[in-house]
Nucleic acid binder design. Structure first.
Lengths: 230, 230
DNA sequence: CGAACAATTGATCCTCATCAAACCTTGTGG
DNA sequence: CCACAAGGTTTGATGAGGATCAATTGTTCG
């Protein structure tokens, strides 16, 4: 069943689009559903389409030649991904996009977005806005990785995730659904270190953790770890 | 003495501008000359202007609250910097821009660029192109920092620099003019480690190094260090 | 020539990665 | 409904890779 085109307004790049434009994008897109663990695209594939995640969760990962990988970002509903190729000609995806659970996305030809941008300044503008935000985030994460210790990096990753993908539980706490491996790839460390740090936090009453699950008990405590001098 | 507006075409974002547009930008800019070590702007300042470096060299650095800093990129002639603020409203610079030698830049109001982009799709487009390139570079550097060992990261930093700011010497070799500290900030390590690695490379005949100076003797050898598996 | 700055090198220490083994948790099929 | 397999997690032991500190040497410039 096709989505309601007007829902696309929830995509930040489309927030200023006319209803007609939204319908145009929807009409030009094809829905793709994939299972957990499968890929929307692989690093190195020609970047013909960009995607809008309609349901589920996914992650963008980049691997080095020997296979080690980092998690560049996690994608939740109504986020756009794979859009870098919409600008540079004959580009390939710089990262792979893997579903963290059963997910469906709308795939739209990058060339179409490019075409639309020619006549709609608001589109270029909103896409640029998205890019600058992302650049700033990457610059910060880069600095963190270069200058901060693991515990703090993990705290930051957890806070970023809670802001973006945290699920409110019945009792008002916030829960994350990630494996230790995922969290390690997001903070540039190993699953062992993440496990140790979480155990320590649990002892201190900051979180409660289980299989593919972290419950934030004391967000303020995490902020302190993430921010405090020395 | 004011610059020739047509020289602005060498700025990648202005490559498709009309001569008249170039003159407009030049007329709306003011030249600022600063000495080595001084700053065009500081991290946290309101981002009212963006800059085009006309002569000299500069670096963009980001510091964490306790003062440790990383070098996000180095800026050479006819490169634009500080332009992120042109998109997001009431933004502040996410990094500081410091001159590596006596430098002069053209400062143009971000609001003016924004205004120009409204009516000139090519401008938005070329700026986006620049942003995507930068995003890809940052993503790669982030992955490197997370997964690669220092020696390789230093090799990559050196190669990036030679491509961007290498100076051909009389005998056909390429030379870089950076302190160990600068190189350390660019590869996410310390000046001591950079010094040790350069000494080792010198023993192997890959480079020749001196005060604020590295001469590349065997670029291919460096590429091997930067790329080889295992 | 001397002061200021940059680079080198050795010694030491600490943070994490790595490896290994055991332990949970969840889902599946008999 | 239990048993077992598969995948996720924890924890300990060990060691490597760099950071840090300190002392010395080299370079540049007024």
């Amino acid at each position: 069943m096709p989505i309601d085109p007007l829902n696309l307004r929830r995509v930040s790049v489309f927030q200023n689009a006319t209803d007609d434009d939204l319908r145009l994008f929807a009409k030009n897109g094809i829905e793709r559903s994939i299972e957990e663990g499968e890929y929307f695209f692989f690093q190195g594939d020609p970047a013909i389409y960009f995607y809008v995640l309609i349901s589920g969760r996914a992650k963008l990962m980049q691997a080095n030649p020997s296979g080690q990988q980092v998690n560049l970002r996690t994608i939740s509903e109504w986020q756009m991904f794979g859009a870098l190729g919409a600008v540079s000609e004959e580009a390939t995806y710089p990262a792979s996009a893997q579903a963290l659970e059963h997910s469906t996305a709308l795939a739209i030809k990058s060339a179409f977005l490019k075409e639309m941008m020619n006549t709609r300044p608001y589109l270029s503008f909103d896409l640029m806005k998205l890019m600058t935000d992302y650049i700033q985030e990457m610059q910060e994460r880069y600095r963190e990785l270069a200058t901060e210790k693991v515990e703090r990096r993990i705290a930051r990753a957890v806070l970023r995730l809670t802001a973006q993908m945290g699920i409110k539980t019945a009792d008002g706490n916030i829960e994350l659904a990630f494996t230790r491996q995922d969290m390690a790839e997001m903070s540039g460390t190993t699953l062992y270190t993440v496990s140790r740090v979480l155990s320590e936090w649990e002892k201190r009453g900051l979180v409660e953790s289980g299989r593919e699950r972290v419950l934030i008990r004391n967000p303020h405590g995490l902020v302190q770890i993430a921010e405090e001098l020395d």
